[in-house]
Design a protein around this nucleic acid. Structure first.
Lengths: 205, 205
DNA sequence: CTAAAAATACCTCGTACGAGGTATTTTTTT
DNA sequence: AAAAAAATACCTCGTACGAGGTATTTTTAG
């Protein structure tokens, strides 16, 4: 059986190169091309007609979504696996619609990735969104910013874009109480930009 | 000369494992430990006393900032290099304050990383925030969402958390014009959550 | 048991923005 | 030259939140 001809699409060269080494460890995969610029992905795929592409979701210029949409238009039995930073249900849902063959979080170990990719090549659809061996505690985050348990509860809901009123309803609190918590939280956190804040929220489970 | 004893700290196992393979390619580096959970980073560093640690900035539980702060308290001449998703001046400034030995974006190629790490071990401080070979155009992003050039201009400033008024001042536009652009933008973009929106902004240069 | 920390609740003011309009001018495309 | 697209500008209403307060109750730690 010939090795699976694979194209890697990720603008993070370091990750792309590392992933390439991971695949090279296994004789049943061969990396025929590495694409560092999503705009070149389509061209590479139509030229190489790979058996498998691994595409990062978060890329500049053209996001993974667009790449996937376009590659699916191409002829050939190319399998598509999305590699993602995030293990969010919302993200997964978007790719579910696109019917990709796999959705794998970057938290998986290298050997686990190979196992999953082999399953994909065998015709399965795989979703591996989280590493179960990592316990979901946010104590460290909490302590490092001096947040209380209640404040974390509030933050988790802020992360989901819930409004003060919605949070109050869900936790059976007064609107004003949630207001107070949010105020205290923003005084404790050092972030100056919204982006920093949302990056921080990302780390809450 | 003995190889540089290195610890990798990144909760993205796949990246961590890939990075490990990258370093193993070079005889002057040896990876003594891979840490997948930032909470265990301090313990590993005090036990191993490595020559070099590579730490990811964006991690759950405890961010790179905290890890760096703590590791700097430990004895030993451990060099600290931050590996980051982002090439943002703001981020770099935060690590500049901490006086780490290197700040390297994930967009660098594997062999370039090795070169930079050797420079660090030779006593230099390195900052490599962007890959100059990638032209900064956001045409693809623009077209895929049907945004106009002007709208991109507005968005870039929204990304910097500028208010409607500030944007209007900078671009010599009426407040109302900027308001209109922002309205049109939010109608064109499909994002339902703030997080999705900020992830998208990340892709603008 | 007692002091500190956390959680609860209330109030107001100012800022900011999205969504709903309408409308004119400029630029680009055909 | 005409039509289409983009950019400009104005207006209002409602929602939401941060920052500034104050104050009571509950829980935790010493």
């Amino acid at each position: 059986m010939p090795p699976t001809r694979t194209i890697l699409i990720d603008d993070h060269r370091l990750f792309n190169d590392g992933l390439s080494l991971v695949l090279r460890e296994s004789p049943d995969f061969t990396v025929v091309e590495q694409v560092y610029d999503s705009r070149l992905a389509l061209e590479a795929c139509s030229r190489q007609v790979p058996d498998l592409i691994l595409v990062d979701f978060n890329m500049p210029y053209m996001d993974g979504l667009t790449v996937v949409e376009q590659v699916k238009q191409l002829p050939g039995p190319t399998k598509i696996v999305v590699i993602s930073m995030y293990a969010e249900k919302r993200e997964i849902a978007r790719f579910d619609e696109l019917m990709v063959d796999g959705y794998i979080a970057k938290t998986v170990a290298a050997d686990r990735l190979l196992t999953l990719l082999r399953q994909v090549m065998a015709g399965e659809r795989v979703v591996e969104t989280d590493n179960p061996s990592l316990p979901h505690i946010d104590d460290a985050v909490r302590v490092s910013y001096g947040l209380t348990k209640r404040e974390i509860e509030i933050l988790k809901r802020v992360k989901q874009d819930m409004t003060t009123e919605q949070i109050a309803d869900e936790l059976c609190l007064s609107y004003f109480t949630v207001q107070t918590h949010r105020k205290n939280i923003s005084q404790k956190l050092p972030f100056t930009t919204k982006k920093e804040f949302y990056d921080f929220l990302e780390s809450l489970t």
